[in-house]
């Protein structure tokens, strides 16, 4: 079963002459153990696609199914619960709470989502893989852009989500870290059976993706499918 499935999604903003049709008849799905990259230029609708897939925004028409739950039939509270428990977001900006130390970013999650977060051993592996084990006592303002991005990735993974939705997750990373993060996402998908969707400009991430979609003027099209094993 697909972790996230979008069926005939349309999203329009504004009305009349000011109407903008951002997503046009988008059909998409991602399965457990699959890393999907969605590429496209700025303004193509990537972020809108991501927010609809994650239940942050509702489409004008069409269905969004996350882990078998039809988001159209869920109220706000149920969507909050779904995002908190099933979805890990890696956002472009303001990813971290500025007045919490790195370690407190995670302990705060424990306070809100008291169970089913990753265990300590796995958490240490994530920190080590992202190279942020030594940053636990620092505040976000004391981190470089790349460090902030990596902590945000760790934060998203900490809730042990079924799906990770990442918006430009490597925007502030150097080439070596891009490779490491790409490999980490791939391993996470393949070894931990997570569904991962990366919305990105970064062509280097395409090497790690199982499926690559392109989004242009609101239309989503399949660019490449490297493995049929996990693709529906």
């Amino acid at each position: 079963m697909a972790v996230v499935e979008l069926k005939n999604i349309n999203k329009k903003f504004g009305t009349g002459d000011a109407e903008v049709h951002v997503l046009k008849d988008v059909n998409f799905q991602v399965n457990p153990g699959q890393l999907v990259a969605v590429v496209g230029p700025s303004g193509s609708g990537k972020s809108t696609f991501l927010t609809i897939a994650g239940g942050i925004q509702t489409p004008t028409s069409g269905d969004v199914i996350v882990e078998g739950n039809d988001l159209n039939k869920m109220n706000l509270k149920q969507r909050d619960h779904l995002r908190l428990n099933k979805v890990g977001f890696v956002l472009q900006s303001y990813n971290l709470i500025p007045f919490l130390k790195v370690k407190e970013q995670f302990s705060f999650v424990d306070r809100v989502k008291k169970t089913k977060n990753v265990d300590k051993k796995h958490f240490q592996e994530i920190l080590s893989q992202l190279g942020i084990s030594n940053l636990m006592e620092k505040y976000p303002a004391q981190l470089s852009g790349g460090q902030t991005q990596r902590v945000a990735i760790a934060r998203a993974l900490y809730v042990d989500p079924a799906i990770v939705l990442a918006d430009e997750p490597t925007a502030a990373l150097d080439s070596q870290k891009v490779m490491e993060v790409g490999a980490m996402f791939r391993d996470l998908a393949h070894n931990n059976n997570k569904a991962i969707v990366l919305v990105t400009h970064d062509e280097r991430l395409e090497d790690f993706a199982d499926v690559i979609y392109q989004i242009l003027d609101g239309k989503l099209s399949l660019l490449e499918k490297k493995s049929d094993k996990k693709v529906a």
């Binding site: 977001f89 990813n95 809100v112």
Partner: peptide
């Protein structure tokens, strides 16, 4: 507000 928006996006309940 941007911080709260991120927290809301991550599913932290508005009540909290």
């Amino acid at each position: 507000l941007p911080v709260y928006a991120v927290l809301r996006a991550q599913g932290i309940p508005a009540k909290k």
